[in-house]
Design a protein around this nucleic acid. Structure first.
Lengths: 228, 228
DNA sequence: GCAAAAGTGTTTCCGCTACACCCATGA
DNA sequence: TCATGGGTGTAGCGGAAACACTTTTGC
């Protein structure tokens, strides 16, 4: 008999849009469904919520179970509940979005997924249910968030160059930026800690930086606004 | 026997934070619960969602049933699902926030509510469950939204003066603004249509305006950003 | 005529934009 | 030595902020 802790809420699920960035493209992590219906189709990682499990916890658990990912930036996105979104019965899904340092992570599908793979946001496969709508909503949210909160760093390796950072912003926001102005602005915020230089690149080595989260947190309390 | 359309989803509900503005204070509409548990307590209007009813539709229906309100600005806020938020069993609630022209509305409690009343946001009664948390979240969202989308107008009468508008912004955002700068900015957006003057006020009569929604919608398509 | 709110311009300042060339490194 | 990206400063413009007095109206 199932323990109480493994009872699921029948009409509720969680789905996550996981973004990664590989220095040139924004990507989304999808899993190949291993169970009917829709077996074999690529979809957002998602599953049911347990009756004694908080929503955020459920989202994290599902992510871990299906993709192996742990300890990533996650934020509740929106709740999608169209009556017809799931064909068999009514399922309302609380969607989350997650940001992953793509280099740190090699997809490892869990037991309920037969595969897990990064897809460029511009070349997504056909997706079941309303998953494409959820991804589009997440992308819209990401574009907004990245401008006003320093969450872009969640998509970069711990140590990154200013060019990588600029490239990230340009890709997500789909604009071109002036290199000097971008650097002035970022450096002016005093939230980056300069580190050593790159090595082994076939051009002048760039300085590496890391994001000073502690400083940001304390500035934020004093009303500082991150904005690019 | 209940029609299929009246089956409820047991573990899901919707709650709404309804804001109103009476020219000096921001207020929230609460209802007095008419059924156990918590009978007699003031709370956010909320109820179950039906199995064949979209979330937005449910939120609107519940609002109408409990408060008589119809045709108001509504937006999904966040989904609150703490395991312990409801004492009897697990209930996840999809919260909405609504903006109401307070002058147009005299509270009329529906059959499931024994009373409905506006409370100043700074003088709320003790609320059950996590309702205070939901209100605080809604307030935070309102403060953000009002700066970047012209939804403040939803809180004012159709015809309003610039001072009323400024007062609304000052109250919501909890700041003081310079009258001349405020007027320059607002008028400069060209989104207000000047109307006749006030009558019967014990001081110089102010010009009334109304918000040009059509114009805003077409500007928005061209990429215009409302921002105060 | 007085109280109360409406209405109105100008100056200053700061941040955003535009813009082009030299440097370091590995191949 | 060449290809590739790294790194740097300044001038001009425009929008934001600061600031105070006159006007209209009802009582």
């Amino acid at each position: 008999m199932a323990k109480k802790s493994e009872q699921i809420i029948k009409n509720l699920s969680t789905d996550s849009v996981i973004f990664g960035f590989d220095n040139s493209e924004l990507k989304v992590l999808l899993i190949k469904l291993a169970v009917e219906p829709q077996k074999g189709e690529w979809a957002l990682p998602g599953s049911n919520i347990l009756t004694d499990e908080n929503l955020d916890v459920a989202a994290k658990r599902v992510l871990k179970e299906l993709t192996g990912l742990d300890n990533v930036y996650m934020e509740q996105l929106y709740t999608f509940g169209d009556v017809l979104r799931f064909p068999l019965f009514r399922v309302v899904t609380v969607a989350y979005f997650a940001l992953v340092k793509i280099e740190d992570y090699q997809p490892e599908p869990g037991p309920k997924a037969s595969d897990a793979k990064w897809f460029p946001i511009k070349k997504l496969p056909k997706l079941p249910f309303d998953h494409i709508e959820i991804i589009n909503y997440a992308l819209k949210r990401l574009k907004q968030r990245v401008r006003i909160r320093p969450i872009g760093f969640e998509l970069l390796p711990m140590k990154f160059t200013l060019s990588q950072l600029q490239n990230l912003y340009e890709t997500i926001m789909d604009v071109e930026m002036d290199k000097r102005n971008f650097r002035k602005k970022i450096i002016g915020m005093n939230l980056l800690i300069p580190l050593e230089k790159q090595k082994g690149v076939p051009h002048r080595a760039a300085k590496l930086y890391r994001f000073d989260k502690r400083k940001y947190d304390s500035l934020k309390e004093k009303g500082f606004n991150f904005e690019i």
